[in-house]
Computed example of a mutant assay.
Amino acid sequence: MSFPVTRLRRLRKTPAIRNMVRETIVNKDDLIMPYFVCPGEGVQNPIKSMPGNYQHSIDMLVKEVKDLYETTGVDKILLFGIPEEKDEDGTVACSQHAIVPRAITALKEAVPEVMIVADVCNCEYTTHGHCGTIVDGDVNNDLTLKTLAAQSVALAVAGADIIAPSDMMDGRVAAIRNALDENGFENTPIMAYSAKYASAFYGPFRDAAESAPQFGDRSTYQMDPANSDEALREVQEDINEGADMVMVKPALSYLDVINRVKSTFNMPVVAYNVSGEFSMVKAAAQNGWIDEQRIIREILTSIKRAGADVIITYHAKEFMLNQIHSK
């Protein structure tokens, strides 16, 4: 049948009809809220390039996560750490006394209902800001695996529910899986940053995590933004090595990759709606150029529609508060 028998506008006539036939709905269970934890007490440092986000000391983080859960129902967070001091290879992150393991312990005691995803990488913890051990001017893949495995075990011991390696070293999922299994954490899932691109969208994050590289860039280990076939190879490798979930990062410029990964592998796909994507929305909204809440809803819907099962986003709290208040 075609027009005039078929009139597609019939199903757009009223809000009730539109709601009834809506294909893609984003809810609290789809969202993970990222946080940055730093040393000190009573600390809440605003991140200028990411309005509404902060570096929290552990005590303030506990209050913030408790408020997130109680006011929005969002029960999943992703943790990044800013250490008291850094070293050449990131071993400062491999101890139970490191900033993120201590934060996990405090959160598990105060808000046990919240699931904690622990990012695993060395860029926040190295003096040079790269994601691993430097040899001859570049990150040495195999030496870095040892640090990543040790860091993962420390996070699991502290109580992390999911380990999320974001470094893009070859073989790191297998190294982490083996280390977790050998230490009795065979049931701890791995959320692999499988297709992580060398993107310009990470700028505000590097301010937040104090992790900008001191020389060069990350193009020798993060993916070329021009490639999508390569993304499928990266995802396949991580699945073969034991990844339980795979991630595409960033999200908005890589919706095609999200869709290809979901269609090809049919396993849980995570998309990271990254800091630059967040900050562009905030900047445009502050200038009155866009309807902020409509834009946020449209962005998150598009990411889920592309195939993401889970969305990591700095919009998580405000999105859910807006949803609650608009009902």
Results as ranks from 00 to 15, higher is better:
residue 11 L to N: 10
residue 13 K to M: 15
residue 19 N to K: 15
residue 22 R to Q: 11
residue 43 V to Y: 07
residue 44 Q to S: 06
residue 48 K to A: 08
residue 52 G to C: 02
residue 60 M to Q: 11
residue 66 K to R: 09
residue 69 Y to T: 02
residue 70 E to T: 15
residue 71 T to P: 11
residue 80 F to R: 00
residue 83 P to N: 03
residue 94 C to F: 15
residue 95 S to C: 14
residue 95 S to P: 05
residue 101 P to L: 03
residue 104 I to W: 13
residue 107 L to M: 07
residue 108 K to S: 14
residue 109 E to Q: 08
residue 122 N to M: 14
residue 129 G to S: 06
residue 130 H to L: 03
residue 134 I to L: 15
residue 136 D to H: 04
residue 138 D to L: 12
residue 141 N to I: 01
residue 141 N to G: 08
residue 144 T to E: 14
residue 146 K to M: 12
residue 154 A to K: 07
residue 155 L to A: 05
residue 155 L to G: 04
residue 156 A to E: 06
residue 161 D to R: 05
residue 162 I to A: 06
residue 165 P to Q: 02
residue 170 D to E: 07
residue 174 A to C: 11
residue 178 N to T: 02
residue 179 A to S: 05
residue 183 N to E: 15
residue 187 N to S: 11
residue 190 I to M: 05
residue 210 E to W: 13
residue 213 P to S: 02
residue 215 F to A: 14
residue 217 D to F: 08
residue 223 M to D: 08
residue 225 P to Y: 13
residue 230 E to M: 05
residue 232 L to F: 10
residue 242 G to N: 07
residue 252 L to D: 01
residue 254 Y to T: 15
residue 265 F to C: 05
residue 265 F to I: 01
residue 269 V to Q: 11
residue 283 A to Y: 07
residue 285 A to E: 05
residue 288 G to F: 13
residue 288 G to N: 09
residue 289 W to A: 06
residue 291 D to N: 14
residue 292 E to A: 13
residue 292 E to C: 04
residue 302 S to K: 00
residue 305 R to M: 15
residue 308 A to P: 12
residue 317 K to S: 09
residue 320 M to S: 14
residue 324 I to N: 01
